[in-house]
Write a protein that binds this DNA or RNA. Structure first.
Lengths: 195, 195, 195, 195
DNA sequence: CATGAATGAGTATTCATTCAT
DNA sequence: AATGAATGAATACTCATTCAT
């Protein structure tokens, strides 16, 4: 069997797991259900992943990969123009909040299984976010567009808190009205960060 | 058996369920474990609660009761001094974030079981929070201490978002350092809300 | 529920497991089958034993208990009359060889699961057998009825080997014809042990 | 592909199965594991053997072949000198007991799958052993070196029992100390068989 | 009211075997 | 001939819930 098809199967399962867990949480998503959604047999499921927790790990790894790409671009922008980078980040947060599945999926992460891979992926994501935001704030401070009465690290932390709040809000309230939240968030950021 | 003892038993179970679920999530907290922590038999457990979901409902109801009390006081203060009320609310949020169990428990709520009682309690809590915050902001606007370029409802929503972010942050990072987060939050609120 | 009934249930399961495993071996005896034979549900099975291996452990523990009783009597006899004790032991071996289930059960023990309890029980049984046989031979040597050109330990070892051979023979050939094997065994022991 | 390579593959699988089963028993040796040890894919495995039981059958057939060769030689010797043949047989038993894998493999045979081929091989081995030993004893009786107060068949049976005991002993105690067991066994045989 | 033995549907996972490439 | 992806029946074990005592 070709490597392409093999990858496709794997991706199907990851995708199915993502959707199931976003809707019903980790524990209530049975492997049988994921198999059904992915259109594979239980045997195939365990051919690709040793345990159910491992698929969650793969889902997170996948998400981490996408986050890395987005943050890479934000990082590049920040070096030139922190305000523009901030706006990119804001768009990214709103994108996530608008993705119905993702918003639901975040909730899952409150009750993760004891699994090294899963824990590692979560830590990596948190670490990455923290790093990039801190860097972004530091750049803004140097460029004179962001207040300097707090350390980049602390301001970055609060940006993270804000993002989490928006995501949770979206998970609760359903698909967030982007047109409302977007401008409001811009306004908030200006007030919070201006020198 | 006296009504007092009956109530005590019930409270023991609720408390045990709260602690178990805060630590391991809803699904991974077994009734057996809750019974053990509460010091009762499974028979007794199901004597007081028809299902496992019902205990979660009771836990939430309990929390809602406490929230009501806190918010009642905040409401009273707001009528006279919205800024002072805001500070009370901020304290309340920090209290919650500092309560290790509660921070963990919030995470649970991402993956709740299909249960009318539970859903109702959650809705009531959200509704109450929204109402009080909106009211608080409206009062502040009238008193001239809060910006008036947005509706009380929208500003209230963002306060809610902020609170959720802090709670989630606490759940992830462990017991939050109050001394750091507290002043920063005050600063944030001032920047966000001043006219 | 009374302690008596509780013990009875446990005993039922142990007995069922013993019979199933004697007939089909450990791996091929499913818990479902054992439950059926014992007349209990799977829930009850796991209420009394944490794992399938644990029942095997209990079966062995049970057998060890019976072995202890038999060997206690043999030990007592040996102090006075080693030849008589030897005959008691021979009877015991033939009893075991005649028990169709037991003969089959011995075979199981070739492929035991990795389980501490099981391993311990097997070791205890082997140890006990070795001890008693060694003691018996030593007594016979003192009483002048057993050859003294080998150590009690070595002679005891060969008695053990003989017993294993008889048991295996019985497991293969079906219910052993006691009337044939009995006298022959006496003859063998005389030839092997006389001074 | 040449017949030689074909045979080699087959032999590899048989050898791998032998080693796996000797170590973990029949049920606990998975086809995947055997494939890995043999260095072939599952497809190849099932190309050469229709079922897992069939490989066990082949392993036994292989062993039977080797047994035949040994016994052929013993048979030849017996016609001239039963005592010498007995010593050859004793060496053979000790060889088997010293072979760590074989000793372990014997244990497997307690829990064999329901399979005609396997059963046939086992029966053939038992039959052959019985025949040769009976013949050997008969020759010894004619040569005046073995007691004549029992039939060759019964004496042969006891020799078989003894061999089984030694094998089981080896399986339990690990690699048997040949230097100890060898002379002792000679001594036993002399005592048991002399006229 | 309190207990804990009993239940059985449900779950993750294993593994011999098939078959398209 | 050789591969290894795919299958799905089978299995040990969990856990919310019931009910006789």
């Amino acid at each position: 069997m070709s490597a392409i098809r093999r990858t496709a199967r794997r991706a199907d399962i990851i995708d199915a797991a993502y959707r199931c867990m976003a809707q019903h949480g980790y524990e209530r998503s049975t492997t049988a259900q994921i198999c059904k959604v992915a259109g594979v047999s239980s045997g195939t499921f365990f051919h690709y992943f040793p345990t159910k927790a491992a698929v969650l790990g793969a889902v997170l790894e996948d998400g981490l990969q996408r986050t890395r790409e987005v943050f890479e671009r934000i990082r590049d922008t920040a070096a030139r123009d922190a305000v523009a980078a901030l706006d990119q980040w804001r768009e990214h947060v709103l994108d996530e909040a608008s993705d119905e599945n993702l918003a639901g999926f975040i909730a899952v992460l409150g009750a993760v299984p004891d699994n090294a891979e899963v824990a590692a992926a979560l830590r990596a994501e948190a670490q990455l976010t923290r790093e990039v935001l801190t860097e972004l704030v530091a750049a803004g401070q140097e460029q004179g567009t962001i207040r300097t009465d707090r350390t980049p690290d602390r301001i970055g932390t609060w940006l993270g808190i804000l993002a989490r709040g928006v995501l949770e809000h979206a998970a609760e309230e359903g698909p967030v009205v982007r047109d409302t939240l977007g401008p409001e968030m811009t306004d908030m950021l200006i007030r919070l960060l201006r020198p």
